[in-house]
Simulated assay, not measured.
Amino acid sequence: MQGSGKESLEERLQRLEAELAERRRDEADGDAADEKAAESRKGYAVAVKLSSEFVAAVIVGALLGYLLDRFAGTAPWGMIVLLLLGFCAGVLNVMRSAGMVASPHPVDRMAGRDAGDKANKDSG
């Protein structure tokens, strides 16, 4: 009697280990799917950010061009020039955000301010 009880416990233990292994495998598959979904959401977020930066720059350029034409009477040249400048600014913003173009180094920015400050002091 003890022999059959011990065999049934071993069979049960093997069955439980097989079920545990299957659940762990399913859980690992679920984790991989969650990671893939998170990566996909991150990609969509970056795409929306980049597209909104580009569209905003073009709209601002067009709006400023329209206002310049409206008040200065330079139609259609203000709109054309500032729309093109907005397009270029949008492309530059997207390239900077995507990491394809480096933003100015802080030392270079400080050098530009120092030169501007010296010019202001000399003229004043």
Rank of each mutant, 00 (worst) to 15 (best):
M1H: 13
A56S: 12
L84P: 01
S40N: 08
V60N: 06
A57K: 04
Q14P: 05
K36R: 10
D122Y: 07
K49F: 12
G73D: 14
L9H: 14
A28D: 15
R41Y: 03
A47G: 03
L64P: 00
K6H: 10
L84E: 00
A75W: 14
G124Y: 01
K42L: 03
E22T: 07
V55K: 00
E17I: 00
L63C: 11
L16T: 06
A21L: 00
G30Q: 07
W77M: 08
L9C: 09
M100N: 02
E35I: 06
G43P: 04
A62L: 13
E10A: 07
E27R: 12
A62R: 03
Q14R: 13
I80N: 01
G116V: 07
Q2V: 09
E19G: 02
G5D: 15
S8P: 06
D29Y: 15
F54R: 07
A62Y: 10
I59P: 11
M1L: 14
K42T: 02
L84W: 00
F87D: 08
A75D: 14
G65S: 04
R25T: 04
L85R: 03
E19W: 02
A33Y: 14
E11T: 10
L50E: 03
R25N: 04
G112T: 12
I80F: 05
L92S: 11
R23Y: 10
E22I: 05
D69R: 12
L84T: 00
A72Y: 14
D29K: 15
G3P: 11
A57Y: 03
G65A: 04
G65C: 03
N120W: 09
N93E: 09
A75Y: 15
F87P: 05
L85H: 04
L63E: 13
C88L: 15
E27V: 08
V55H: 00
G124N: 02
A62V: 08
